[in-house]
Every structure is written in C-alpha cells, then in structure tokens.
Design a protein around this nucleic acid. Structure first.
Lengths: 207, 207, 207, 207
DNA sequence: GATGAATGAGCGTTCATTCAT
DNA sequence: CATGAATGAACGCTCATTCAT
C-alpha cells in the first residue's frame, strides 16, 4: 500500500506523467491545507493551485477523502522515514540512549512539515478512512518500539510488553505534539529531558 | 439549579422559559453531534431536534461556534466536577495513592458522556474560540495537579515542577483517551495500572 | 395627517404617555438608521434602542414600513418648517431675493438631520407608501413656490407656471442634495450662487 | 459583439459557452429586478429565471453586489452610447441647439430600459461599490459636457466652468428622470422645452 | 484522458412579525 | 396594554461532485 521506490518499471512513461500530476495535486493539497485550513480547502481550490482541472483531480482521486487520505499517507511515510532512520541507529544501544533517540526522533519527525502535521492532528476529523490514515504512524512506530523492546526484554522492569509499548508510544507522541505546537508550557528542551526521564524510569530500573 | 436565592427578582419567570429553551438546544446539540458528527451537525438540524425554531436558537447563541463552545464548556464543567471531587479526596494522600486517584478520576471523567467527549476531541476543529474551550479542561486539571505537587514537593524526585505538571497531565489525558475510546490495545485495567506506574516512577523515588 | 401642535386637549394624559413612547421609538429609528443603514435597521434593534419591547413597537406601528414612513413624515415636517419659515419672510421680495431665499432655505432644511435625510434619499427604496412619504416634501415646497409665483406672475418671463414650478423645485432639490452630500464637485457656496443664477435667469428677465 | 479579431485564440469555445451563461444571468437579473424590485430579487430567484443553477451564478459573479454592479455597468454603457451618439452630432453646433440635443439625448437614454433604470435610481441603495457604479453615467456625461463647453467657452456667460457642468448635468438628469418616470406634473414635451430654456439661459446670453 | 462549466443540496444566519403570558 | 420568547420563510453563498465537450 505504500508506494516504495520504482520497483515495477513497466509502463514508466505513462506512469511518470501520471505520477507528476498526482504529485502536483498532493503538493497543492498540502499548500492549500496549510494556507486555508481543512474546512476551506476545497477540491476546486486545490485543483487550481495544482494547475490541473478539477476533472483531472477526480480522475486520480475519487473523493476529497481519498485525496486527503493519500496526502496523510505520504506525510506519514516521510515522518516515518525520519523516525525509523534515527531509531534504527540505536537498536543495540542501552535503554536510556534508545529512549532519548526515540524522543528526539519523534520531535524531528514532527518537524518534517509541522504546519501540515498540525492540521492533520487538529483539524482533520478522525472519521472513516481518514481515521485509519491518521493512525498509520502510530502503528508503524509501535512496531519499531516493539522490535527494540523484544530484543532488550531482559533489561526491562515492565512485564506486559504490549501495554508498555502502547504507553510509551502514545505518551511520547502526545507530549511531543504539545511540545512542538503549543506555545504555553515548558521549553522544548526541558520537555524532551522530562519525556526521556518519564519513559526511561518506566521501562527500566536505575542502573 | 435555578432560582437559588432571590438575588435578582426581575425577569425570573422569563428566564425560566428561556433556560428551558437553552437547555433543550444544548441537549439537542449534544445528541446531534453524537448521532451525526460535527460536520453534519447543522444549526437547522439542531433546532429541529430541540423542537425549537432556528430563530430561537440564534436568539440564544449568536453563532454555531458559540453554541458548540457553550456545550463544550458545559461538558468540561461536568467532567471537571467528577475529576475534582475524586482528586480532592486524596489531597493529603501519599503520591502513589494520589496518582492512582488522578488516573482513575481521569478515566471516570471520560465516562461522563464518552461519545460526546470523543466528538469534541476528534472532530471539532481546534480553531478560534473553540480551541480555547477545548483547552479549558487541561487548564483546570493542571491547577489541581499543581496544588497537590506544591504541597508534596519534598517527596518528589523531579525538580522542574511546571514541566512535571505538563508531562503528567498531558500524558495521562492522552493515554486515558485512547484507553477509553480506542478498541485495539491493552485492556483498560492493565492500562490504568501502567499509567499509574509510569507517573509514579516519574514523580517520586521508590520508597 | 400631519400632527400639528396640541389642538385637541382631550385625553391628554393617556396620549402623553403614548406620545412619549412613539417619540422614543421614532428617535430610536432615526438613530439606528443613521448608525446601521436601512438594510440593517431591524425592528428588533430599533425596539431595543428605544428601550421598548418589540411587542410595544408593533402596538404603535403595524409594520416596518409604517414606522419608517412615520419617521419620514416627521422629518419632512421639520425640514418643511425650516423651509417655510425662511421662504415666508420673502413672500413680497423681488424675484432675485426670493430665489436666493429658496435656495438657502433648501440648503438649511437639508442640514436639519443631514445623515438621516441622506439615508432617506439614498437607501430607502421608493416603493409603496414610502414613495409617497418621500414625495411629501416636494409637494409642500411646490405649494409655497406656487403661491409666490402666482403673486409675482407679472414679473416672470416663463409662461407655463406649473412647468416652471416643477423645474425650479426639482432642480433646486437635486442640486442642493448633491451640494450638501457629495464630496466631489464645487464648494457649497459656489453652488448656491450658481443655483440662484440658474433659477433667476430662468424665471425672470434681467432687470 | 464577441470574437472580433482572433487575439487570444485560447479558450474561445469555452468562453462562448460561458458568455452565454453570463448573458442569461444578466438578462434574468434585469427581468427579476423589474418584476420584483431590488429587495425581492434574490440570487436564487435570478438563477432560476436564468435557467441556470445558483452555483453557476456564483461562478461568474462572486456576490450579489457584483452581479447588480455588472448589470448597472452594462446598462450605463448602453445609456451612455445613446447619449454620446446624439451629443457628438452637435459638438460644433451653437449652444441652444447643443443644449436641446443634450436634453433630448438624456431623455432618449432614459428610454433604453426605463423600468430597469428606475429600479437602479430608486431602489438600489447607494452604498459601497454599487454607489460607484451608479455614479458612472454622471461622470461620463460630465466629460462630454465639459468637452463641449471648453470648446465654446467664448460664447458662455458663466465663468466657473466646473460649477456650470455640475449644475447642468445634475439638473438635467434630475428633471429628465422625473419627466420620464413621474406621472404627475407637466407633459414630457413641455418639460423638455422648459429644461432647454433653463439651461440655455444659464449658460449663454440671449443672442 | 483532460477540461471546466454546471449542478444543487445544504449551510449559517437574519428579521419582520405573532402571540402566550 | 406591555412583554419578549418564539417563529420560519428566505437570504446570500459554498463546495464536492458530475458530465458534455
């Protein structure tokens, strides 16, 4: 379901043109969402910005929901790439270091297109297929965390692994979201330290 | 709930009639939001459901935003009442017990009108005045937590109190929200235990 | 149809109260019209400003049209009073002096409540009974001019008196309206001179 | 009136379809205004009458104001064409003849679509952008008069040219409007004679 | 395929007017 | 008589979607 790098080279020219159109539409969607917000992001406005007719837009995306869903998917993939790259580097590191990497990676992934991400989180209704798209990131992040924790099970103080994953992933995500987007409250650095502390103490005994 | 002491005797009967209408409108708003979601909750539909003309609705609420905002305020007050009542009971209790009370109180407050709460969290765009209303609960919950932590500062291992409050309040809220509403994931009881553990270890040394 | 000074003193007390209410409503109408314009001057807003219930407003005025019509009548009476007082003073004066008096009187009558007058002229649709009310001033001004011209017929160069009256009254009115309200164009004094010149040359031979 | 020289060949067929729709909408606007008056001329009614969806109306006119403004512009252009054609023919004629031509041209221009013109003058509120559109005719008529008077300055008795233009244009317009639309009063022919007399005596010495 | 004109249900909101109290 | 809560038709306008060209 993810569009990975060009694995199937057949019909490239046609696909290349199509892909360019699709990209233009998705780019326009992102820009209109950021500029106008979800409620005022009409498909006509998006087609205009993409330099594409509204008819063409509907050729590639059968509904507004599918269009926004595709953009969310694309954005999730980008965030996930940032997250996984950083987390992969510490897959053998001790817990404290790994936790810090997860928190920082979460922050960095939130900085990919922060305005767009904020609109996804705060304006797009979590309904129908959009809800699924918006959950995608969690699911994949959970997998990465699961892999690490399974490999380091002996160092953990928590017993119920699935619950721990759930707690860690969602606590980190919620706190980072607020750290990145909400003005009031502690500085971002102070928060990162606190989140690392919170999660580390939860997962492992003091060494 | 009306007419407590005769402080302002003028317009009392008038107000009673109005209040009934206002209540009917707010009730209808809640029901329509739950049944149809925020996007399909039109003011005309709400007025219909309230058994009231659209004109009456606009006599009491100058805009859809103000109507939803009023309902959010009302709902926040109810949740807050549940939360504060339970938290007040442990204001002198040791940290572990207090944290458990906070987590359980958060869960209970989420069960006041869970479907409505979910709409507020997941469908109402965090924009303009609605954003403020949606923040109300956090602000008040933070105050309660602040009061407790200030009184128990000597027992805490965290130094930066404001950061700790921020972390605790938002982590608990985000995790409870998911515990209550999202089907996949651990059982609610397991989660409550884990959240208590997470927060307790963060705030205080093992005794 | 004009309310002249208290000619029928019976039932004074009752009428006094009613009259006070009516006056308050008319005053409020004038103020709301000036502040908000005709389109946004709702009967509810007017009743509010008058410190009177909407029900009472409709007790005295059966429709918005009748309310605005009454205000136009009242305003026309005030303008007419100013106009007639000044014109009466020159009823035996030579034409040039009389014409000047008419023009100046027209200007002065436009300054009674200029903002209100402008709204009557530029925003109130000339439809139904309102059209009649708005014509009232013309009719009475024409009568005054007619009386003068009849008395000075021998000095006139124009033969068709009714046509002359029509031309004089409406030309003066249109030009004075623009002189008073429109920013672009000549200064008011220059215009007054020109209007006097226009009308004098039209009515009489140079002496 | 379309497609004169092939200057911009792109979108020509497209434009033709659009232009037909725009024309239908403007025509319907004129008819609805005449039939129902400005206040009852709703955009939905106009779209209905044009045999076009309300959405199409708003594709071409972003607001009711812009729609009525466009119609006023179109109508002003038509009136102006009639006026200028007749006035141009006498640009070298002596004053008396030129004045007569101006008055007759003003009458004729008022007969282009008299009912519509009356609506514009008497029902459309002179507010915002509509005020500008409604002034358009005056401005252009003034220019034509200015050109003539400048060319014939030596024959004039008035010294202040701008004031004279102002007086002539607005007096003629106001009187013609009444001559054409108001039932009571002198016959139209008598009025035309009187207006010509009024203006001629004002501008020039008897020859 | 691409185009963009066209659609129309539905939205939030206003306001002259009525009528039970 | 006065009140003001209640009414509801109607308004200007948006936008996801369709379909003839």
């Amino acid at each position: 379901m993810l569009q990975k790098p060009p694995l199937s080279p057949r019909k490239k020219p046609v696909q290349a043109r199509s892909q360019a159109t699709v990209d233009a539409i998705l780019e326009a969607t992102a820009r209109v969402l950021v500029d106008s917000g979800y409620d005022r992001a009409s498909t006509n406005r998006i087609a205009d910005r993409a330099g594409v007719s509204i008819g063409s837009l509907y050729q590639y995306f059968p509904s507004k929901e599918s269009l926004v869903g595709a953009l969310i998917d694309r954005h999730s993939d980008e965030m996930l790439a940032v997250f996984l790259r950083q987390v992969a580097a510490v897959k053998d590191a001790p817990i404290h270091e790994a936790v810090r990497a997860v928190v920082v990676a979460t922050v960095d992934s939130h900085l990919v297109e922060p305005k767009l991400h904020r609109i996804f989180e705060e304006q797009v209704p979590r309904i129908g297929k959009l809800a699924e798209s918006l959950e995608k990131l969690d699911t994949h992040a959970s997998s990465a965390v699961r892999a690490y924790l399974l490999a380091h099970a002996s160092e953990l103080r928590v017993k119920d692994l699935e619950t721990a994953i759930f707690v860690v992933v969602h606590a980190v995500e919620a706190l980072v979201h607020r750290a990145v987007f909400v003005q009031r409250g502690p500085t971002r650095d102070a928060l990162v330290e606190a989140i690392v502390d919170l999660v580390t103490r939860f997962l492992a005994e003091d060494q």
